[in-house]
Design a protein around this nucleic acid. Structure first.
Lengths: 195, 195
DNA sequence: GATTGAAATGAACACGCGTTCAGATACCCT
DNA sequence: AGGGTATCTGAACGCGTGTTCATTTCAATC
């Protein structure tokens, strides 16, 4: 036996990434073997190397693509008007995006330590660009006198940590809807930085 | 060669746990081998089994001991007076305790998925007891009319996520002192739930 | 319908894994 | 001083790891 009927790189490629994503998120990068990923795709381990140079590249590609998609989506998001409006837009964007792809979000900050030094630097840089957007909003609000905080960088980290934390407990079939969660967190963020 | 000079379980035991703690925190449970731990202690891998039943027990013991220590310390912490005072005391306690043992904190919520189902249930129960303390404070404040929030459970998760996030960026030699960080976060927590 | 390239197999490689255990050595107690 | 116990070694066990590659089969092109 060799090549399978219906096999195509445009099909298998995404399936490999999807399987890796799900397994990495559930069990952690180090705990998942290439054979497990291959099995989830329905293929032998050797076939994975048509789609990735090695296991590390598989993780890095997932994280890099995620961060770039995130930043691209953020750039498509409106960022004008008064600082309160901009903060609200940012928070809503963050919550929605993170609830849409919890596995990617989970991996992107859980598996940072499993990246090689060079790969880590790349992802870290992308992360900073994201945080910078929030910091700009906070700074504008502080200058306008509508926000008040002792330290902008710390405030941005606190807000992002709070918002990202949603993914650790939110369940689709849970007590609260996405919209409800969004409003609750938005209220807390607003109050936390208000003058 | 066999037993080493100066060897003693009261010495080696803690060193095993310390080495496991440091390595688990740095590289993750699944990525650390028993031989690495043994090497850090300066011993052969087989010797570790004088101090733990297996690798899983090593992780579980670290997490369980940490959570029980945390709860015991919390119980020694004053919890009376008006809700604002109680919230302040809780937040200060949380920040200080978490900055004192970042490795344990890191492990205690990063490695939850590497616990067996039974062990996970134990740790999860201890975590809930901790969250309950904060929820009680928030509830009291809400009834007294000094706090205002749409959902107490969600608010407690948001606050804890925000505070715990400090450990991901705080560095001892960094720009801000512990006391400064404490004040900044305390301010945000207070404002976030105030009526 | 033959030819070419893409896609997957399955076996192999060297190595590391968690764990066990008989044997050797150091410490402690009488 | 000597016997017993606590402590560690070193080798072994079976198995799983990431990765490579010659080979085979399918899909697409001419």
């Amino acid at each position: 036996m060799a090549r399978k009927i219906g096999s195509h790189s445009k099909i298998t490629g995404p399936r490999v990434r999807q399987a890796a994503l799900t397994l990495f998120a559930r069990h952690g990068y180090a705990a998942v073997s290439m054979r497990q990923i291959a099995s989830a795709v329905g293929v032998q381990a050797g076939a994975l190397y048509n789609y990735t140079a090695d296991k590390q590249a598989l993780l890095f590609d997932l994280m890099q693509t995620h961060m770039e998609d995130l930043l691209a989506a953020l750039d498509r998001c409106p960022d004008h008007g008064d600082p309160q409006m901009r903060l609200e837009t940012f928070a809503r964007f963050h919550i929605r995006y993170h609830l849409d792809c919890p596995d990617l979000v989970f991996i992107a900050y859980m598996e940072l330590r499993n990246l090689t030094a060079a790969n880590f630097a790349v992802i870290e840089g992308l992360r900073r660009r994201y945080e910078l957007r929030l910091q700009n909003i906070l700074e504008a609000g502080q200058k306008a006198g509508v926000f008040e905080m002792p330290d902008i960088k710390v405030a941005s980290m606190a807000i992002i940590a709070m918002l990202t934390g949603i993914t650790t407990w939110y369940r689709e079939e849970g007590r609260l809807s996405r919209a409800q969660v969004e409003e609750i967190y938005l209220g807390m963020v607003r109050k936390a930085v208000n003058a």
